[in-house]
Amino acid sequence: MNKNFIQEEILRSSGVNPKKCMKCGKCSATCPAYDEMEYHPHQFVSMVENGDIEPLMNSKSLYRCLSCFACIDRCPRSVQPAKLVEAVRLAVVRQQGKNHLTANDIPELIDDETPQQLLVSAFRKYTK
């Protein structure tokens, strides 16, 4: 799919304007799942801004975000990085067509580190 189309889609569905970011890194400073991520919250913002979406879509980082919204709460520029993460996740799901998360996929995703609440919320989101 067209790279620009996905970028626009992500910006539209998230309602985030990454140009507001002043690159202070407070989102990454506040993130409790930072060490689990390959791409950190501030990188999400700059990569989406630069249209560098594909590595994000292929990254496990997408599913490490706890959706705790601490980054949204503390961002001085009201950028809302967690909403971008959510929008990228959605873009991935949409590309998969009907191949959403099923109950059978869950055991594979369970490990000691991932909070159960994340799986519950993911299951709720990606299942019809």
Binding site: K26, C27, S28, A29, T30, A70
Partner: peptide, 15 residues
Amino acid sequence: VEEFGVKYIKGMVGK
């Protein structure tokens, strides 16, 4: 930075 060795770090405190 150079004479007094203050550690300047580009980034923000989160909590």
